[in-house]
Design a protein around this nucleic acid. Structure first.
Lengths: 221, 221
DNA sequence: ATTATATTTTAGGCAAATCTAAAAATTTAA
DNA sequence: TTAAATTTTTAGATTTGCCTAAAATATAAT
């Protein structure tokens, strides 16, 4: 009944790709897992036998209900451990992903539930991604929009940075922007789509279109 | 250069058996790891090739300097995670071993060092076993003696319970004895070697020879 | 609609970590 | 000190997860 780490990684990758594109192909999955299409086919057959994916050769595949549950559990583990690493061990959010990739595979359900309690039942991880509860349910997230879509003059809260790279982290750290920061757009420049923004009701800076596109905000909350 | 989990477990088991008996045999190691002697021989050859054990067929084996370092690192990980589970996630010391068996294999050195800091650099784990520092050094432990060896009337601190089973934990919990508890022997009964002891300067109880033998105390500190 | 291209699968192999059964070496005991 | 018992090792398989190269199928393009 125990799912191997490699299988867990396959389920997780399928889940993420399904969420993004709605559908997944063998090649995509192979790329996501840094493995070869042939290996994916092998694994798919095993996962099907265990009832974790629905698979028909040459036709495509998708997670079964059980497979989805397993994937969500891993994602929960991953995100909770990221919270622990950032909030209590004082790591930067850009450093924690790899460590969480290992921690997410720990098998004790009780451990993760106690960790959840210890952390105070956080609803999002340090990157702004939602954390499902112990039953695998994602509580509805507040609506997030890319910063360029925010109306000028309307204040909003930064809820996520995506994708997160060391480079954008460095830039945003310098500009004192992180999750929870309040931002108001003061001016949009059509020339290069850069934005002049006010940060936490204080100083103004300018961010390029590229940076702005990676910042997600919410007007509610 | 990365050591597999299975190899780490072999090194750790050799380390523990060497500490106990001074020497280890193929059969003992197989028993400790719930595996077969033939598998031990296989693994030993691999570990030798990697310079982690000194091995001559039919002659015996022991950890090399590198092997010892690796083993100590795992033990450090294991004991620090046990501290975390007991001190922060509120598990009983009898429950944490299995979880720590998984956590000990995490590969990030930085993670474990930050955990050490977070925990306040504990010198012993919840079972009273010493935790080596980041360089693998065990700081000299205060002398521990089995409770029956303690002189009557001399106060001492409980430093370890060994071996720890759910049953003895239950008994000691009921008698309010744990690591850190102060104990004084009031009377030794030669008839069955049971002891009448005073717990934390308060009430007295009696413990059987079997229980007493499993309690280790230190008069210093 | 047929060919060309791209995707997916099969076939056959490899390395790690285990196993069983049998052989070899060592140790113990008569 | 040789025979018996024990320990350890070898030989040969198995499972898991991956690989490459070639074949099968599906999709796109003329």
């Amino acid at each position: 009944m125990k799912i191997s780490i490699s299988k867990e990684n396959h389920l997780k990758a399928i889940f993420h790709l399904e969420s993004d594109h709605g559908t997944v192909t063998t090649n995509e999955l192979a790329a996501a897992l840094h493995t070869r299409p042939a290996s994916i086919t092998d694994m798919l057959k095993k996962l099907q036998k265990e009832g974790l994916v629905l698979y028909e050769r040459y036709k495509g595949f998708s997670l079964s209900q059980d497979g989805k549950m397993a994937a969500v559990q891993i994602i929960r583990n991953h995100r909770l451990w990221e919270c622990f690493l950032v909030d209590h061990l004082d790591f930067d959010w850009s450093q924690v992903h790899e460590m969480a990739e290992e921690l997410e595979h720990l098998t004790s359900r009780k451990l993760i539930d106690r960790l959840d309690f210890f952390l105070g039942f956080p609803r999002t991880d340090p990157h702004g991604d939602p954390i499902p509860d112990s039953d695998g349910k994602f509580t509805r997230q507040i609506a997030q929009i890319p910063l360029p879509n925010l109306l000028t003059g309307k204040e909003a809260t930064v809820t996520a940075i995506r994708p997160q790279t060391d480079q954008i982290l460095e830039l945003l750290q310098h500009k004192k922007i992180k999750i929870g920061t309040r931002i108001t757009i003061r001016k949009k420049f059509d020339f290069d789509d850069s934005l002049e923004i006010e940060v936490d009701g204080g100083a103004s800076t300018t961010v390029s279109a590229l940076v702005a596109k990676n910042i997600y905000v919410s007007v509610q909350k």
